[in-house]
Design a protein around this nucleic acid. Structure first.
Lengths: 244, 244
DNA sequence: AAGTGTGAAGTCTTTCACAGCT
DNA sequence: AGCTGTGAAAGACTTCACACTT
């Protein structure tokens, strides 16, 4: 257990471990080793142990980790013991899909209200018991029921404006589905969900991999002809994180 | 221009730069400095120059970068000059939202077909001119029109199965909306879009930030005159990547 | 015997700082 | 004078390897 700075990637992985622990628990598995769990999460076992070591000692040497205890510990570290409340901003197709997405409530997130900046959409029934409110009403809403998380799926050109108002109302974490990078004050966190960037990086990986294969073929075919100009060899990496 | 290994994060950032360059181009801006562009993308200017330096020299000293030339160069590096074809696997709410999402075609991605493993959904008209086909038909489909990218939004327990079959049919890049980590052979890339993991990390950031504030208050109360060096305060980091 | 916990080593990434060009 | 391009330094993260515990 150290006091060192904790890598952002560690937090992401804890969340992944947590999910696999839930599965093990459901299957009635009582104990798991770092080896087993790491294999499921696609990480190095030492990585897993190191990740945990930032926060304490959770295992038993020679045995492994109690599934239920570790699950609890991780949930506690992440701060996700109780259900968390989220507001949704935006009413487009993405917003509609998100609210129907069972994954959120399975992970303990509950949408308490839907807002929009576009007056056109205000008043419509969005889901059962969820009527779209105008963003102006958020500040009153948070007085009644404090919320700190917002999922934002509005057009790119309104994102900064929306973010500013969310922060003003006390929101401290924003999950942003628009590609626009937004500016927020210290103490507020933002995560981006940006599909096309990820597709671009897949595209890059594919074309890089092809180039490599060609080069290898060339090298094998024409061994003495050392062609070392602008082209170079890049290792193929399978990207595993969302980080990206 | 080096022949070093290129960080995955660099590729992600290139994609971000590209987007801001498009905006600048649309506004008629001819030249941009690393400072300006970096500010928009929320990165350090040296980072931006270093990112570009992996691939060549694109700027003019004392002046900056030509917006249109740099945009072209980056598109070329990423391999996203022409329109790319994608297949969609899955027909749930997320899949439906994705196909309606204008962001994809704006970035040059085109959905050529929709597949599902669940026979229930096969045959239904998904979007105009897009009828859901069974995954069995994918191998024939790719013979007609080769595709290398797939967006997968099927239930978690089917994801590995779907991925295996996609790879068999020649797919080389998978954008996976299910939280399940999947195994693919070398040469195939996977990116994950995992909403709840990102929410978990926001939750963690929020509670960490609160704890810090409390500690600082305590410290101030206990040692009111002590000036701490810069070492004790963890900056709250705004995460920029999908690495997460 | 088996598997954790962790310093230390190794690797990767970012930032600095300034030489070099226009 | 201004801004890029880049080695070198700093910093962050991952992996190794083994002491230690049950």
């Amino acid at each position: 257990m150290s006091k060192a700075k904790i890598p952002a990637a560690t937090i992401i992985r804890l969340s992944v471990y947590q999910r696999y622990l839930k599965k093990l628990l459901a299957r009635g598995v009582k104990v798991v080793s770092s080896n087993d769990l790491a294999k499921q999460a696609n990480v190095n076992p030492a990585q897993l142990r190191k990740d945990l070591s930032y926060f304490g000692r959770f295992g038993v040497r020679g045995v492994g980790y109690s599934v239920s205890t570790l699950l609890n510990s991780i949930s506690n570290i992440l701060g996700v013991m109780e259900e968390r409340t989220v507001v949704l901003v935006g009413t487009g197709p993405i917003a509609q899909a998100l609210i129907r997405q069972p994954g959120f409530s399975q992970q303990g997130y509950h949408f308490a209200a839907v807002f929009d900046i576009d007056k056109k959409n205000v008043g419509q029934e969005f889901e059962e018991d969820l009527v779209v409110q105008h963003l102006d009403e958020l500040s009153d809403f948070v007085k009644e029921s404090p919320v700190e998380l917002a999922v934002v799926a509005v057009p790119s050109d309104r994102t900064q404006e929306v973010a500013d108002r969310l922060v003003e109302c006390g929101i401290r974490g924003i999950l942003n589905f628009s590609p626009n990078r937004i500016k927020v004050p210290r103490g507020v966190s933002v995560q981006y969900v940006d599909f096309t960037i990820l597709l671009d990086s897949l595209t890059y990986n594919i074309s890089r991999h092809k180039k490599e294969e060609e080069e290898q073929k060339e090298e094998k075919a024409a061994f003495p002809k050392l062609k070392w100009g602008r082209e170079h060899s890049w290792p193929v990496v399978q990207s595993n994180n969302t980080m990206a």
